[in-house]
Design a protein around this nucleic acid. Structure first.
Length: 299
DNA sequence: GAGCCGTGGTC
DNA sequence: TGACCAAGGCT
């Protein structure tokens, strides 16, 4: 007697197993999911995808992988070139951190992306989520992977709540409890939960009619109650330092060489705020000052 | 741990 | 139209 015959009936109503099968038919064809993409390609994609939509990442990821297919290749590139190649993905500090990570990979890991979560988390710009995503999707390890999609799916499916609670340490255990025991299926499960959150169990208007695990969903069984917690407020953007920094960087990205301070004046009318933001860009290493008091992307 | 760090699309 | 949202990380 092998155990297979006893596992099969359970799989029909085991949400973890159902999601793996659903993913096989519903998954998007994204370039970083294709066969042959190595852990480096996965790492680059995960950093680019931090807070940035898939559609904007796709073309940039293709360019980066064509130009810098290894950590060593990226480690040799100047910050200025990377900031320009980052384009309008946003949060350009990620480009600098990815370069720092590449340098660390060359210096500490022989130029390869390590498989263990602890070593990955030690890399600049790699936190709890990204480290597990790379270990799981890049190295095939059955790690629990928790992002905002997964927290939302678990909140509804398991806890019967409309919205994801703030990240907490128990999230990893919640997801691990849903995962199939077979390691290969556990790996696909990790990406399947994220895909469900991205395509079906979305934040604003969930498509419950298309959900493969709707019959097991605690939120649906509870009648889809509205969110009860305090309304989380979204960050402003217009008029903030983030917008001003973006404007300043825009000027420097477009310029051929160093630009005088007077050229940066046109980026934002408020001199005090403009100066503060330029200083913060210098501190962050996104801008450098030349000897003749002009400014440029760091060489 | 709350606030900061870009950008653009959607409803 | 403006709030909301998008595969987080860092301080």
């Amino acid at each position: 007697m092998d155990g297979t015959a006893h596992r099969l009936p359970a799989a029909d109503d085991d949400p973890g197993e159902v999601l793996v099968d659903w993913y096989a038919t519903a998954a998007r064809d994204l370039p970083w999911r294709r066969p042959g993409v190595d852990p480096w390609g996965v790492l680059v994609s995960e950093v680019m995808l931090q807070q940035t939509p898939v559609v904007r990442v796709e073309p940039v990821w293709r360019q980066w992988m064509a130009r810098w297919p290894t950590p060593a290749a990226l480690a040799a590139v100047s910050p200025a070139e990377l900031i320009r190649a980052w384009g309008k993905l946003g949060y350009p500090r990620r480009a600098l951190r990815l370069r720092e990570a590449a340098v660390a990979l060359v210096e500490r890991h022989g130029g390869v992306v390590p498989p263990d979560v602890t070593a990955l988390e030690a890399l600049p710009g790699v936190g709890t989520y990204t480290a597990r995503a790379v270990a799981c999707f890049g190295h095939g390890q059955p790690q629990p992977v928790v992002d905002t999609n997964v927290r939302r799916v678990v909140a509804r499916l398991v806890h019967g709540r409309a919205e994801a609670a703030p990240a907490r340490s128990a999230d990893l255990a919640d997801v691990a409890a849903l995962a199939p025991t077979d390691p290969a299926r556990a790996v696909r499960f990790a990406i399947a939960v994220m895909e469900l959150g991205a395509l079906v169990c979305v934040a604003r208007t969930p498509r419950c009619g298309a959900c493969p695990v709707r019959n097991a969903c605690a939120w649906r069984q509870a009648g889809c109650p509205a969110a009860d917690g305090p309304p989380r407020r979204v960050q402003k953007f217009a008029g903030t330092d983030r917008q001003v920094r973006g404007r300043l960087l825009d000027v420097l990205r477009a310029a051929e060489g160093p630009v005088a301070a007077v050229q940066l004046d046109q980026a934002w009318p408020d001199a005090v705020q403009r100066s503060r933001c330029l200083d913060s860009l210098l501190v962050d290493g996104l801008v450098e000052q030349t000897g003749d008091r002009r400014f440029r992307l760091p060489a």
